[in-house]
Design a protein around this nucleic acid. Structure first.
Ligand SMILES: NC(=O)c1ccc[n+]([C@@H]2O[C@H](COP(=O)([O-])OP(=O)(O)OC[C@H]3O[C@@H](n4cnc5c(N)ncnc54)[C@H](O)[C@@H]3O)[C@@H](O)[C@H]2O)c1
Ligand SMILES: NC(=O)c1ccc[n+]([C@@H]2O[C@H](COP(=O)([O-])OP(=O)(O)OC[C@H]3O[C@@H](n4cnc5c(N)ncnc54)[C@H](O)[C@@H]3O)[C@@H](O)[C@H]2O)c1
Lengths: 269, 269
DNA sequence: ATGCCTTTGTGAACGCGTGCACAAAGATTG
DNA sequence: CAATCTTTGTGCACGCGTTCACAAAGGCAT
């Protein structure tokens, strides 16, 4: 069992770089919006702005798909929507199962954006016997006992895990054994999966911690800047819209109230 | 207004690479688990396995924080937990507001893992007057009218957006004007924010589409492999657990039923 | 105290992703 | 038909991130 290997620096798909693949859905979304407004063509500059990326990057991304643009004009919106959809495999229908119908799983089941583009919730699965048969998002929850049968009968290859962390590894193993080869994991655990299985994780806690890091850094920098510029320490030459951070907590001082102040309780031995 | 710039190839923090910052929460989680099992020290090899990364990468990551290990022994678990927590800014308390208490927002509010590490849900905000005052996760939902007041009074610098896509940009602007400088966005939109504001997005739909891409690729490769090996076209030397894809649609042929077959309806003009 | 064994910390090489800048392509206009 | 203008597609350089591989450091046994 490969322990790490959750991400795929593995098989560089079919020439299309992973970074590009990750942006295609973004382009597709922007293009779909344009399509709904009946915009016939769009330049790389406009589309890039809508998708929030650099226009050169966008053109390079599209170049991996082929030469679908017209110089001097731009890209045909409808045509590009189709090409990207096809490249992403959205021209076919992907049945998906959600395992773990708690707070999050139920929210996911109720989420409309799912079926919007090629994905169809084939079944909701939970281990709680009390949940079995209950309707969630207009669909009866099924028991974990039938997991394998459900996967096989529906030809499911994509599974979503929204169980508690402790159950995630075991659930993934059952899913994989039954034929699932792609997993979207919401549980805060590292899943060990065999080669050939793709796992993507969504981890709220990690995202928040990354934000906290930058938030702390901003506070620290501001404190440092205030120190260098003695006059404007409190309310001096505040820039335009005055985005004043909550309080002037300095980064350097996160000391505990304890006597040793800087180390927790245990020293490195 | 900076249009793109959602991600930060921007200010390379304080020497700590962004990629490393993104992994610190992963290490922290693994270390916390070890700490709860009262494991005193851990080697880079063991910890890397637990976090699902390469051990050399882990050591390099830690080297940005300083020399906290002991050669021949490993790292002191408690000490490292504290150092990473401090680096991520988790030794202080971060009040967070959730805007948009629908399916997802309510699930987030109910999520325990929030408060587990430094984050505290300070308020739940929704635009629906019918929601105002209603208790969700033991907390009364407040109306959007009071958004600015809530942010300021609680010193909130991190906001979570779980509104429909159409409202997200406007909500972000109000949050930012009120003092929020970090946003976690669950709505499927590109947010335009001024410099100095960090945005991270969680996009279920994009994750699924990326999985679909790889899924399609696997199916295509399998079909190609089967074609090269004529004997085992249908049920020949199937590997172990027989991971049979839904149907034998080849990647190359996603043609529509129409006459022109390959293009959607409109040609590039 | 000495030598052995384990594990860290990092120099160096490599590969991927990004963005600049421009030539080529095509539309458009006179 | 020729000139001009717009926009694509990409060669190229650069920087970041990953990984290898190893010397130095420290513990531990004898
Ligand atoms: N709620 C959130 O906003 C949120 C945010 C981020 C991450 N998460 C993570 O998502 C997961 C689910 O969160 P939640 O709030 O919905 O939890 P929850 O406790 O409300 O729901 C978990 C569900 O999984 C079911 N379950 C347990 N073991 C199972 C098994 N072996 N097979 C199938 N079903 C099983 C339970 O019966 C329950 O219905 C957790 O790992 C949590 O850490 C949740
Ligand atoms: N539910 C999911 O699993 C899921 C998954 C991925 C993404 N999303 C996205 O998350 C967002 C929320 O999804 P949901 O399923 O919870 O939707 P929802 O419709 O259930 O909830 C949206 C809530 O936002 C409130 N709201 C609307 N405009 C507002 C405003 N201007 N200010 C404050 N509140 C406002 C509404 O009153 C409602 O309570 C959507 O953008 C959706 O695309 C949801």
């Amino acid at each position: 069992m490969a322990t790490g290997r959750t991400h795929r620096p593995a098989t560089r798909s079919r020439g299309i770089p992973e970074a590009t693949v990750a942006r295609l859905p973004l382009y597709l979304r922007a293009l779909t919006a344009l399509s709904e407004r009946s915009v016939p063509t769009v330049s790389s500059e406009e589309l890039a702005a809508a998708a929030g990326v650099n226009s050169a990057k966008l053109r390079k991304d599209f170049s991996y798909l082929g030469s679908y643009g017209t110089r001097g004009v731009g890209y045909d919106v409808e045509y590009l929507v189709y090409q990207i959809s096809r490249e992403l495999g959205l021209t076919q229908d992907w049945p998906v199962v959600i395992v773990g119908i708690g707070n999050l799983g139920a929210a996911l089941a109720n989420y409309g954006g799912f079926s919007a583009r090629g994905f169809r919730v084939a079944a909701l699965i939970d281990a709680d016997p009390a949940m079995a048969g209950k309707p969630v998002a207009g669909m009866a929850v099924q028991h974990t006992d039938d997991l394998e049968k459900i996967i096989e009968e529906n030809g499911v290859s994509i599974g979503v895990i929204a169980t508690p962390a402790g159950a995630a590894q075991q659930v993934s193993e059952r899913l994989i054994a039954a034929g699932v080869t792609s997993i979207l994991n919401f549980a805060p655990t590292v899943l060990s999966v065999p080669d050939g299985v793709d796992v993507r994780k969504v981890d709220l806690s990690i995202e928040l911690q990354i934000l906290a890091f930058h938030e702390q850094r901003k506070a620290g920098e501001e404190a440092a800047a205030a120190a260098t510029e003695p006059g404007s320490a409190v309310g001096g030459a505040a820039p335009a819209a005055a985005v004043v951070p909550p309080a002037g907590r300095t980064t350097a001082e996160a000391r505990k109230g304890g006597p040793e102040g800087d180390v927790p309780a245990v020293m490195p031995a």
